[in-house]
Design a protein around this nucleic acid. Structure first.
Ligand SMILES: [Zn+2]
Ligand SMILES: [Zn+2]
Ligand SMILES: [Zn+2]
Ligand SMILES: [Zn+2]
Lengths: 135, 135
DNA sequence: TAATGTTTTGTTATATTATAACAATGTGTA
DNA sequence: TACACATTGTTATAATATAACAAAACATTA
């Protein structure tokens, strides 16, 4: 199978694929300029090339941005291929980040109504604490 | 009552008080450099002076940071004078931000356990949608 | 194939957000 | 007073992100 065919399956362009692969195989969230440094040998030279790929990957739900850390991780939660409802746990010592996949939590938040009765289908939740190792 | 006395009540230093007052009277979240611009006439000239005050104000729970917007709002929720559990609704059109004060929500999140049975007392939740006006 | 619109890329420059390092001053308390 | 500690002032710099424009690649269909 040709690479272009594989890319088409995932709807990823060349730069998007390079950057997704890097994030996907990383064991920790990656920052934009760390990504840039890592992909320079593959011909991606400018910040904007990285940010454009990141924007697209977030938009299609392949990666998520950890807002409090300005960093990106791959989504391993098959139920959130659209980037609209995310939850993470973040260790305040080692900065390990894990995506939380909880049917109960997502149901609760998707059904949450504020004082005006307003419901929100899109949210981002970041829990902070100490991971197993750091406790 | 002297100003120094008032400051003492709130434990705010001069710069902290100036910056808190500005944020507190603002109807929208303020960004650090917008704050800097606004307080230059009061003698605060450098970014670091702003960031130091912001850090302290966040730490003592007088203000919160809206992570997805890099902006700050005053806390009007008497139950969260320590900055550890925050929830906001954010309008994706007009960028209006409201702090959510829901006993049910905070109870649910404070008691939430992940797959490993881990509880998190600190979290930040950002809901996105359209406010009343923008709907 | 050729024409067309759309997405992606490449590139330079610049804007925005945030911290490092160090010296000086103020504040509370013993 | 003397001491510890928090706060301030200042310059420089690091880190994060976008503007603007031109060229190339890709998809759709005439
Ligand atoms: Zn996900
Ligand atoms: Zn840890
Ligand atoms: Zn609050
Ligand atoms: Zn609105």
């Amino acid at each position: 199978m040709r690479i272009s065919k594989i890319n088409k399956m995932h709807n990823l362009s060349k730069n998007q694929q390079i950057i997704f692969d890097l994030i996907d195989k990383s064991s920790e969230p990656l920052k934009a300029y760390a990504i840039l440094f890592n992909v320079q040998k593959k011909g991606i030279k400018a910040p904007l090339q990285v940010y454009r790929a990141l924007d697209k990957l977030v938009e299609i739900g392949k990666i998520h941005k950890i807002e409090s850390r300005n960093a990106f991780i791959a989504c391993h939660n098959s139920s959130c291929q659209v980037a609209k409802a995310t939850a993470f746990s973040i260790c305040e010592i080692c900065e390990k980040v894990t995506e939380i996949s909880s049917a109960g939590l997502s149901k609760y938040l998707a059904n949450f109504k504020d004082k005006d009765g307003m419901k929100y289908s899109k949210y981002n939740l970041e829990f902070f604490g100490l991971c197993k190792k750091c406790r």
